[in-house]
Computed example of a mutant assay.
Amino acid sequence: MDNLNEAITLGRRVVEDAETAGDKAPFVCEELAECYATVGDYDMAAEFAARAYEVLSGNPAFVRDESERLAKLATLAKIYTTVGSLLPSTARVVDQKVDI
């Protein structure tokens, strides 16, 4: 558990530094979402998953090649009701069960 807490602390610093430089750091946000979910902090997991989803769902290559990861982010972010309007091509994937 200590390693996860250290990873969260480091990840948050990386995200803050990236945002200062104008980068949304979606892959770091994705990892933070996973870490928070693992330690049971689902509100923070949802926040960081939504941040990652916002950026990555706009990347056609990521949508095409990483649909399972995108679906997992949507699940963590609890975006079920808006996915269809944001990205119709991923709506089918999000409707599937994703184990976390």
Rank of each mutant, 00 (worst) to 15 (best):
A25H: 01
V15D: 00
F62G: 00
V94T: 10
E66S: 07
A21R: 10
M1H: 11
T82D: 15
E47V: 12
R12V: 13
N5L: 15
N59E: 10
E66Q: 09
L73K: 04
P88C: 08
A46R: 13
E34H: 10
L73V: 03
C35Q: 05
A46M: 08
L4S: 10
S67Y: 05
E68S: 08
E19D: 07
E19F: 06
G22E: 01
C29Q: 03
P60Y: 06
C35I: 04
R13L: 11
A91V: 13
A71R: 06
L73P: 00
G58A: 03
A52L: 07
A50P: 03
T20H: 12
G84R: 11
Y36K: 04
E19V: 07
V63K: 03
A50E: 04
D99K: 12
V83Q: 02
V83A: 04
T38F: 11
A21I: 04
E34Y: 12
A91T: 09
P26T: 00
I8W: 08
T90D: 06
L76N: 02
I8H: 04
L73A: 03
A49G: 01
T81H: 11
E19Y: 05
T82L: 07
A74F: 02
R92P: 05
G58D: 03
V63S: 01
Q96E: 14
R92K: 12
L70T: 01
E54W: 12
R69E: 00
N3P: 04
L32I: 01
K72M: 13
E30M: 08
L56F: 02
D2N: 13
L10V: 13
V63I: 09
P88W: 06
S89R: 08
